[in-house]
């Protein structure tokens, strides 16, 4: 019983982080699916989302507004708006001018953008860790008396629920809406979609905006869950989310979700049963194994050579 509780606790820890990775991974995978480039500045968009949320929360606190749902919703909306605008602007300034050139050029442009945004936040907000107020506190306890007690905090529940809502909304959006259908068309064949009258530039912008908005949600959630933000924390999260996207099959949206969850659970079980030192070894080892035996990722479709 004890061991089972311990295992479940580590599983919950992993799934919490995994859901957030999945939210960020969507941004990588959608952009790759449509224009075949890796947006390395995506981790920074997530970081900016977290900072915006923090600024909004602090602002509301000084205004004396403390009703929790209102604070969370306002923070979420602010973060999503700022991040989406950022995602759109990044695409316009750094990627569109070099689209269609050699693959390496947008990649370098993305890395440059990432460094620029990181340093911008450094200058604007300072380089120190800033504490995030703990808004959602408390939780449920399982297990009796003396032994190990499993806890499921309300914050973790919030993360699960928000992720499920976002993912469902995204799936519906992609499968039912006009823009979603256009997205799928563009990802199948950009040139042909263009010929059929789809404004591909608009669709590509929309992809960046959607990815950025989801990253902002993750920024707010993880900022509150971890408890602090700093200008560099987008980099590591971005790297992990990128791994998740590749693990699940880059270009595939369900793949990004699955990849995020697997990565989160793998990390948490490794630090739970082996040692925290091996966490990154195992998660990146997993990535190498999957790439060796299934190069398109778990749910990725093999690329068909277009003639």
């Amino acid at each position: 019983m004890q061991d089972l509780l311990y295992f479940s606790q580590q599983l919950i820890n992993g799934l919490t982080i995994g859901s957030a990775y999945a939210l960020i991974a969507i941004g990588y995978t959608m952009v790759y699916g449509i224009i075949g480039m890796i947006n390395f500045a995506h981790g920074e968009i997530y970081m900016i989302g977290a900072y915006t949320a923090l600024i909004a929360i602090t602002g509301l606190a000084t205004l004396g507004i403390a009703w929790l749902p209102a604070v969370l919703i306002v923070a979420l909306i602010c973060a999503m708006i700022v991040s989406s605008a950022m995602g759109w602007a990044v695409e316009r300034t750094a990627y569109r001018p070099v689209r269609g050139r050699h693959r390496l050029i947008p990649l370098i442009s993305a890395i440059g953008m990432s460094i620029f945004l990181q340093n911008y936040v450094h200058l604007a907000q300072g380089s120190r860790n800033i504490g995030f107020p703990a808004l959602v506190e408390g939780g449920l306890q399982f297990g009796s008396g003396e032994g190990f007690q499993m806890s499921l905090s309300y914050m973790q529940i919030t993360i699960f629920i928000t992720t499920v809502i976002c993912m469902t909304a995204l799936s519906l959006f992609i499968s039912r809406s006009r823009i979603g259908r256009a997205c799928r068309a563009v990802s199948q064949d950009l040139g042909m979609a263009n010929l059929l009258g789809i404004d591909t530039n608009r669709i590509i912008s929309a992809t960046f905006v959607i990815g950025a908005a989801l990253a902002a949600v993750a920024g707010l959630l993880l900022g509150m869950y971890y408890g602090s933000v700093d200008p560099l924390f987008g980099f590591i999260a971005g790297l992990k989310a990128f791994t998740a996207a590749v693990l699940g099959g880059i270009g595939s949206i369900p793949g990004a979700m699955l990849g995020g969850l697997i990565l989160g659970v793998a990390e948490s079980l490794t630090s739970g049963y082996l040692s925290g030192e091996y966490k990154d070894v195992v998660s990146f080892g997993l990535l190498i194994l999957i790439l060796l035996f299934k190069p398109t990722g778990l749910l990725g479709k093999p690329e068909v050579e277009k003639i």
């Binding site: 606790q9 820890n13 982080i17 971890y226 990390e267 630090s271 925290g276 030192e277 966490k279």
Partner: peptide
């Protein structure tokens, strides 16, 4: 006796282990 990675933000697994 265990190491973590500087710059990491999620310590939930470590804390679960300490609790156990």
């Amino acid at each position: 006796f265990e190491g973590i990675t500087a710059g990491d933000k999620d310590f939930s697994s470590l804390i679960t282990k300490l609790k156990q």
